[in-house]
Computed example of a mutant assay.
Amino acid sequence: MSSNKSYSLFLNSIRYNTENQSVVYSAIVDGKEIALSGRVSGVAGIRSVVMSDELEKFLRPFCANDPGIVKRLVNATWRAVDGESLEYPIQI
């Protein structure tokens, strides 16, 4: 991540695979497109996102400045999984 202290994060896409419940997030960071993964989980009516180690590590600096970023990521993920039409890029 660049050192300009900009902590905005925009997702260019959220791709959901129904077969294995995996999610791939696409974002532009320092002018390069990156892809990070997770998996959706819904147990007893509680919906969550299980983040890959890479996604968790990537989000850590953002969380230090804005703890709500994970909640917004989970919300955007489930909106995509539920088939809602999202307008990208999405700021989380």
Rank of each mutant, 00 (worst) to 15 (best):
G45N: 09
W78S: 08
G38Q: 00
T77R: 13
L59V: 01
W78Q: 09
C63K: 12
M51A: 06
E56L: 14
D53H: 13
V70T: 07
L59Q: 00
G68V: 06
A80T: 11
R47I: 04
R47V: 04
A80E: 08
K71E: 05
D66L: 09
A64L: 14
F62G: 08
V70A: 05
V49I: 13
E54S: 11
W78I: 07
F62S: 07
E54C: 06
A80N: 10
L73V: 11
K57S: 05
A44R: 15
V43Y: 13
S37F: 13
V70G: 02
V74L: 05
A44Y: 12
G38Y: 00
I46F: 00
M51G: 05
D82I: 03
V81N: 15
P61W: 01
R60F: 04
E56H: 13
A76G: 08
W78G: 08
V40P: 13
P67D: 04
R60D: 05
V43W: 10
S41L: 14
A35N: 15
A64C: 10
V74C: 12
E54D: 04
N75G: 06
L55N: 01
N65C: 14
S37M: 15
C63P: 03
F58H: 04
N75F: 01
T77F: 13
V49M: 10
S48G: 14
R39G: 09
F62T: 05
R60G: 07
G42N: 14
P61K: 04
T77D: 10
V49F: 10
L59T: 01
W78N: 10
